[in-house]
Design a binder for these strands. Structure first.
Length: 1175
RNA sequence: AGUCUCGUAGCUCAGGUGGUUAGAGCGUUACACUGAUAAUGUAAAGGUCCCCAGUUCGAGUCUGGGCGGGACUACCA
């Protein structure tokens, strides 16, 4: 910004107008030229560290305004700790792997995942990913600079670098050695047609979910009835059955079945459990099977009863039922809660195979069970549904996987009658020709087995199973059911859920420790740690690390074909050794080692000796990246000499970022000491969406590897929404560009607004109007306050205050007051920052600057600054104001680093920076609560008096004689007397008269002090309240005198203490009174002739001052004033001429008969003709 | 569906441990002030504290149930 007095180097700079973006550009340039960030780190000692971890952003997307939010939080606490003298090194980082990068490249090339390895080599593809991921780095760095986020961008950690990946391998190996890394399976979407698993992203491609019609079936699962076999509810069921008139326990008529619905009958052979809802009510119903017409008892959810049993059929007589009747009679015999059904055993529906482990064929509780569809009882096939898998695992139930990876039934599904073995479970997997051939076969088999004489068309596996169930009295109902079903985006064929091999980190093994250590972490807000994160840990499942993609860290695990032997490689060195060993053993031919080109083959083909192989590997590894495909073909030798292939998977990118405390230093290969000094972090901060992301993976790895937390304090900020509360999205066009915002409104205002508006963990509605307010009200006020200081300091040239004052005893009340406030502010702000409460800190600073410093201290002190020559009192005023401004600059510097530095430089010198300062400590001796209290009393009193003036329409400029203030006690009077002068001058009244009891004119009012009295009175409260409210003034006098009062309540005596009541003054009969929270003032509004003259004088001064200003006179210019004769003014001048002349710096005031040139001014309804000229 | 969270003035937000007139700023309206002047002050209007029930002498605050917004996680037999 342009400095007005730049030619006067010894002065405080003065400026025309505040423009924050300009300030920021200047300051930024200065920071960079002087390496202020580096200095702010290097000037702090190595042995006093505050460790911060930067959560790596992905540079393949552009930064948004929400990044300004989270980075402001990171930056401000690092800056705060620097002020406290800590050394805060901040290493930047980039997250470079993962699906978004791959998808971006695929889109750019117009290819799909299937084309990788065919249309484009994996090596080329990964090269493109590598280039692409860093494409917005410059934009990110630019934002980092412009928003004033101090982080070391020159030495970032980058997750795709070999050193980083090698560290990851070392960590994986550590986990492997601790038996925390294992191979298992999860139920994932799988496309048998493509032979590959699908990610949830792939499943969410448009068009993948389609409405299809499938055969659905409600199967009957027969309850095992003897008490030795069944669960606890047998007796209740038996009672119900017998009440219905059937014998329980026998075969036939007394059988009881669970009804369970499925849209995938092909999973029924793999059924191993049934799930019911704990709080769902179930009923036992007696009826007939519609296909076999046998008498049956079935159990289903009560809510769904009438879906299958029309209410009117309850009237039907069982005796009159004939086979084939459309209307089937039923009767409800019993009802129970789902929880009562738990543990009951049933007969396996289709016993083709038995699960190898676990205790199957029981009823379990599942919280996913609903009564919106089906029967309220869910068929569980753990291999083909992830809910199923989870609930089975929780309940120790084994699984059956009677479908192979090509989507066909296994050989175990060997049915003597129905052709199921080796058949595709989905009709869609068959070609028309296959279907035709299969149809012929089915026709023949069903005919010879006397099931269907002349089959008309192909029957799907689902159809066959339904038919089989029907014949065996195991089917309750079947129908075509239309539902949304996922399809493979590549083959268009339906997807099935299928158990797929994966590598896991056994987080469940360290669950207790994860929970325990989490309790030592300081979460902001606390509920994210206890609630969201805590719940997540309580319900922990093992971390599935496997990803079948291309651009990422390869899982360094090799296994033998049969999976009996595995090896985890923890370093490049180890890999080289294993390669050499493999070549020696003979499982790996040199030409297989690496890689893709003919050149490389010959390169390794002519290996003659071990030494040369080792050397060549060294040179090769030096130039290769540790990504696919370079290890895919390497075959290692197991300990028993068997060949081992690498597991094809990559690892979850969250492992990459969770490992940054170690991998950023290439630990454990280098920098071991550096790592130790920087672990764990004192502080991290990210969006709340990282709770299950980065926050989680950091925690898991730290606990698993080092039995430590990874971070001690964590701030998770909420979402940034548009001003209407909608999520910002390109589609809605409500995205706010961070660069535009900074350019137009400045980074400081943005940062300040974000921090002061609401706690960062709340979702924030971002409104540009809010920025405007912040600039005007906060920065504008502070800027004006500085401007005021500079304006007068440049005239008076006070001594530059040095250091901190030790003594304020000679200072006037107002100075001591603002210094008291200031020291309170230092204390509070420090505590807020230390507690990671930036909003409270910002608001406290804002209140101090706007309310206390500007609107009270400066306003009341203005006269002191422009009146007279330099004096001790003036010096005290300058010292005080300077000290306040300087301290505010330091306190606010973490949040708004630019403006605070600008302010600091203006005050202390251009060569200094606030960011190299140290945080001031509060001087307790300066904090005076009584003083703060009485100043507040003064403010409230002024406010009341001004409101009275207002009511009476008496200008403040019109002096008044006196104001009456009732005081309740001595302390109040003392308090008032010390601030009396401020009140009088602020409200332009000549005297305060204090009235107390003795005066007899104050009317008192009493009411219970509920908080105090409530403790003792309890239920008597109402009665006491009534009694107290009807106290006479004598009663009040009594309690004041005696300090207690014996209250008669229903014959009992209740001793009322003085502390149990509040006594207020509220009225002074005959006076103009205003009252608020126990403070009452009465104003004498009589305007005497003398007062009127004085008012006129002040009015005249005011008008002339306005003229001076209109004419652009300088503050110190002397003037001559001529006025056309006027009687009123003449009278006023007779008394107040000296006063007026002094105020307006007039050498002469003359009354003349006429003026050729003049201005008209209004003086209390009279028009004066006035000429003002320089003298 | 589960977990967490939020709901107070037109808007943005404060309101330890329950206490009787529920606050601030912005905005609106009116008035004032004027040696900080694109600054400042005062006042007015504006509230079923999301709803219902409970505990209590007393609930914005505690308990239960609902409604609505948001985030995350998962699923749809």
């Amino acid at each position: 910004m342009k400095q007005k007095n730049a030619d006067k180097p010894n002065q405080y700079p003065e400026y025309d107008q505040l423009h924050l973006p300009t300030i920021e550009k200047e300051i930024l340039k200065w920071w960079e030229e002087n390496k202020v960030f580096e200095q702010s780190v290097n000037t702090r000692p190595d042995n006093k560290r505050f460790v911060f971890y930067e959560g790596p952003p992905s540079a393949n997307g552009k930064p948004g305004i929400h990044h300004v939010m989270s980075r402001t939080i990171k930056d401000l606490f690092c800056r705060f700790k620097t002020l406290q003298g800590y050394r805060v090194e901040r290493k930047a980082g980039w997250d470079t792997h993962g699906l978004p990068v791959e998808l971006g490249v695929e889109k750019q090339l117009g290819i799909t995942k299937a084309d990788i390895g065919t249309k484009i080599t994996v090596a080329e593809y990964n090269k493109l990913c590598r280039e692409d991921v860093m494409k917005f780095t410059d934009i990110w760095n630019d934002l980092t600079r412009k928003m004033g986020y101090w982080v070391d961008m020159d030495n970032p950690y980058i997750t795709y670098e070999n050193n980083y990946i090698e560290s990851l391998w070392a960590l994986l190996k550590m986990l492997y050695d601790k038996n925390l890394l294992y191979e298992g399976y999860t139920i994932q979407p799988y496309s048998p047609a493509a032979g590959t698993g699908l990610s949830s992203h792939e499943l969410n491609q448009p068009g993948c979910y389609r409405n299809v019609k499938d055969v659905s079936a409600i199967a009957q699962f027969r309850l095992l009835q003897t008490s030795s076999e069944g669960g606890g509810l047998t007796a209740k069921i038996q009672e119900g059955v017998e009440r219905g008139g059937s014998p329980f326990g026998g075969q036939g008529a007394g059988e009881v079945y669970f009804l369970a619905w499925t849209t995938t009958p092909w999973t029924l052979p793999s059924n191993t459990a049934l799930a019911v809802g704990k709080d769902i009510e179930y009923v036992l119903v007696k009826t007939f099977n519609q296909f076999t017409h046998q008498l049956i008892h079935v159990i289903l959810a009560k809510d769904l009863l009438n879906k299958y049993f029309p209410a009117e059929n309850a009237e039907l007589n069982f005796e009159e039922y004939n086979k084939g009747d459309k209307k089937i009679p039923f009767v409800v015999l019993q009802s129970f809660q789902g929880s009562e059904l738990e543990g009951i055993r049933y007969e396996q529906l289709l016993p083709y195979a038995q699960p190898k482990d676990g205790d199957a064929f029981r009823v379990v509780l599942g919280d996913f069970v609903t009564t919106t569809d089906g029967t309220g009882i869910v068929h569980i096939a753990p291999s083909f549904g992830s809910d199923d898998f989870k609930v089975a695992k929780q309940n120790g139930i084994g699984s059956l996987t009677l479908v192979d990876r090509s989507g066909k039934f296994t050989d175990e599904v060997n049915d003597p009658v129905f052709p199921l073995q080796g058949r595709y479970v989905k009709e869609a997997y068959l070609t028309d020709a296959e279907k035709e051939q299969e149809f012929k076969l089915q026709h023949e088999i069903l005919r010879t087995n006397n099931i269907i004489a002349d089959l008309k068309s192909y029957m799907s596996v689902d159809d066959l199973i339904v038919l089989k169930l029907k014949l065996e009295n195991k089917l309750f109902k079947t129908e075509k059911y239309e539902h949304n079903y996922p399809h493979c985006w590549r083959t268009d064929k339906p997807v099935i859920y299928y158990p797929l091999d994966s590598w896991f980190i056994r987080t469940t093994a360290i669950k207790d420790r994860l929970i325990e250590l989490n309790k030592t972490i300081n979460w902001k807000p606390a509920h994210t740690g206890e609630g969201r994160f805590g719940q997540w840990l309580e319900n922990l499942v093992d971390w599935n690390l496997s990803r079948s993609r291309y651009w990422g860290t390869p899982l360094p695990i090799w296994t033998t074909e049969d999976g009996s032997e595995t090896k985890c490689i923890g370093s490049i060195e180890e890999l080289k050794k294993e390669i050499i060993k493999a070549v020696e053993v003979g499982v790996l031919a040199p030409h297989q080692i690496i890689f893709e080109t003919e050149n490389e083959r010959t390169f390794f083909d002519d290996i003659k000796s071990k030494t040369s192989l080792s050397e060549r590997l060294d040179s090769k590894f030096a130039e290769l990246s540790l990504h696919k495909p370079y290890f895919d073909n390497i075959i290692l030798s197991s300990d028993t000499g068997k060949p081992m292939k690498r597991v094809d998977d990559l690892i979850d990118v969250w492992f990459d970022s969770g490992a940054m405390p170690y991998a950023q230093w290439h630990y454990p290969f280098e920098n071991i000491e550096k790592f130790q000094k920087n672990f764990p972090a004192d502080f991290i901060a990210e969006g709340v969406d990282q709770t299950r992301g980065w926050f989680f993976t950091l925690h898991v790895l730290a606990v698993a590897l080092f039995d430590s937390v990874a971070y001690k304090n964590v701030v998770s900020n909420g979402l940034l929404l548009d001003k209407a509360g909608n999520k910002m999205s390109k589609r809605l066009g409500n995205v706010i560009d961070p660069f535009d915002t900074i350019e137009k409104y400045s980074a400081d205002a943005t940062r300040w607004y974000m921090m002061r508006n609401s706690d960062p963990w709340e979702n924030m509605k971002f409104d540009l109007n809010g920025l405007q307010d912040v600039i005007r009200s906060h920065f504008g006020t502070l800027y004006n306050t500085y401007g005021f200081f500079a304006l007068y300091a440049n005239i008076d040239s006070p001594q530059t205050p040095k250091g901190v004052f030790k003594d304020n005893s000679n200072y006037v009340e107002l100075d001591r007051w603002i210094l008291s406030k200031l020291n309170t502010l230092i204390k509070e702000t420090t505590a807020f920052y230390e507690d990671y409460e930036p909003t409270k800190a910002a608001r406290a600073i804002e209140k101090f600057v706007d309310d206390d410093l500007s609107n009270w201290y400066v306003r009341l002190n203005r006269r002191r600054f422009w009146k007279g020559e330099m004096s001790d009192d003036k010096q005290a005023a300058y010292d005080t104001l300077y000290h306040c401004l300087n301290t505010v600059a330091v306190l606010m510097s973490p949040i708004s680093p630019f403006f605070s530095d600008w302010l600091y430089k203006n005050l202390k010198g251009k060569e200094l920076s606030v960011h190299l300062e140290y945080l001031p400590t509060a001087n307790e001796a300066f904090i005076d609560n009584d003083l703060e209290e009485r100043m507040e009393l003064a403010q409230r009193t002024c406010s009341l008096i001004l409101s009275l003036r207002k009511k009476e329409k008496i200008k403040v400029r019109q002096p008044l004689m006196k104001v009456l203030i009732p005081v309740l006690n001595k302390k109040m009077k003392t308090q008032f007397s010390k601030v009396e002068s401020y009140i009088l001058s602020e409200v332009n009244v000549k005297a305060i008269e204090y009235v107390d009891d003795a005066s007899g004119i104050v009317k008192k009012k009493i009411k219970p002090n509920f908080k105090e009295l409530g403790k003792r009175a309890g239920a008597k409260m109402k009665a006491i309240q009534n009694a107290v409210m009807s106290f006479t003034s004598d009663d009040i006098a009594t309690i004041e005198r005696e300090q207690k009062y014996n209250l008669q309540l229903d014959g009992e005596v209740f001793v009322l203490l003085i502390g149990d009541v509040e006594i207020l003054t509220e009225d002074i009969p005959g006076w103009l009174v205003a009252s608020e929270s126990g403070l009452t003032v009465a104003l004498d509004v009589t305007i005497t002739e003398e007062l009127r003259q004085e008012g006129n004088a002040r009015e005249f001064v005011n008008k002339v001052q306005n003229l001076r200003k209109d004419k652009d006179f300088q503050v110190l210019d002397r003037i001559k004033v001529s006025v056309v004769k006027n009687e009123t003014l003449e009278k006023t001048l007779a008394i107040f001429k000296d006063y007026i002349a002094n105020e307006i710096l007039a050498k002469e005031i003359v009354l003349v008969d006429a003026l050729s040139e003049f201005d008209e001014v209004e003086l209390n309804e009279e028009i004066l003709k006035v000429k003002v000229e320089l003298n």
